[in-house]
Design a protein around this nucleic acid. Structure first.
Lengths: 187, 187
DNA sequence: GTCTATAAATCGATAGAC
DNA sequence: GTCTATCGATTTATAGAC
């Protein structure tokens, strides 16, 4: 199944993914051409097509791991009673998920380029999962103000990671602040 | 300065703006071609160029009014003492601004297509104004957790308008819920 | 003010050599 | 696995008739 890894470290495939996420995050998916990705990598456009069938395949590969982990987290939460303890534990696990392997970078790109992502299958799927998270925190019948607060709990974690400009904030500060505010919002 | 208005109601210029915002909001700025805008309007592409010099001019015109009002609001807030009363009044005025003339629709488009908008002058300007709002609510020295809460106050108003899927929510419910949560977050 | 026609550039994707 | 070369489609924008 796996291709052999070259001795020079990151595989070309992984380097394409890394550079693509960089450029997509700077300019947006639609405004980033395969020529630009290839140039920053020092290869030609045609080389990309050896590793990915289409441009869409590249962006899809960026979301895959994160989507699988999010699916598992949602499945866990749906097996639990809808109590405040479950919501607290969900928030903690969601915050862990985002921090692991820089997953928040993919989510930041998704949030800032939502409209481009909608027309791709992986974008529509991630969107539906985020809606599932909302439904899970706010079952039918939850009053509007409480629903808004619980929506903001998730957004608090996102904002802690990529909504605060201050370069003084360390990863630890962001993590702790996001958790503290999110936990009080799902009370 | 003003062009005479045709008798049939909305000027062609205003209809271009309306259709452009619709399509930009559906598919994103980059993925929307002038051909599509022209087709939905029932005119040819060339007609658009009589009313707007470039595609960028169209999107710029969508932000102009809102940017001017936001500038005025920021100027007002900067003339006030940074007290909790000022923050409360700012939140109320900001909520009013968003509701007036459907301004939240433009902001919704901006938020969902941030990356496309960054490379246009009007997008960079709006972004800098939103950062100014944050700085205003959280002067230097504000602890991270408090800063996060105050950032979320603005986001609460945005989310009330275009972040909650429920079609049962009326404009009044959204307005009141947004205000209530935002006000408690800037305490 | 709107049209037809077209210029000039760029894009995603493919063919085939090496 | 990467290259050169190119195809076909689409884009923003313009020229000039009406």
């Amino acid at each position: 199944m796996d291709r052999p890894e070259p001795a020079d470290g990151a595989s070309t495939r992984a380097r394409i993914q890394q550079v693509a996420l960089e450029l997509f995050s700077e300019r947006g998916y639609e405004a980033t051409s395969l020529r630009e990705i290839a140039e920053r990598l020092g290869v030609t456009k045609a080389a990309l097509y050896y590793h990915f069938r289409t441009k869409e395949d590249i962006v899809q590969s960026l979301f895959e791991d994160q989507l699988a982990e999010l699916d598992a987290l949602i499945a866990w939460a749906e097996s639990q009673p809808p109590t405040v303890e479950t919501r607290h534990e969900f928030i903690r696990r969601y915050a862990d998920l985002l921090q692991r392997r820089g997953h928040f970078k993919v989510l930041q790109f998704f949030q800032r380029d939502q409209l481009s992502m909608q027309k791709h299958q992986v974008g529509a799927t991630l969107r539906s999962r985020l809606i599932a998270v909302q439904r899970l925190l706010s079952p039918p019948g939850t009053p509007p103000v409480v629903r808004l607060r619980r929506s903001l709990a998730i957004i608090a974690i996102h904002t802690a990671w990529f909504g605060l400009e201050d370069p003084d904030f360390t990863d630890d500060v962001r993590r702790e602040a996001g958790l503290e505010v999110a936990l009080e919002l799902v009370e």
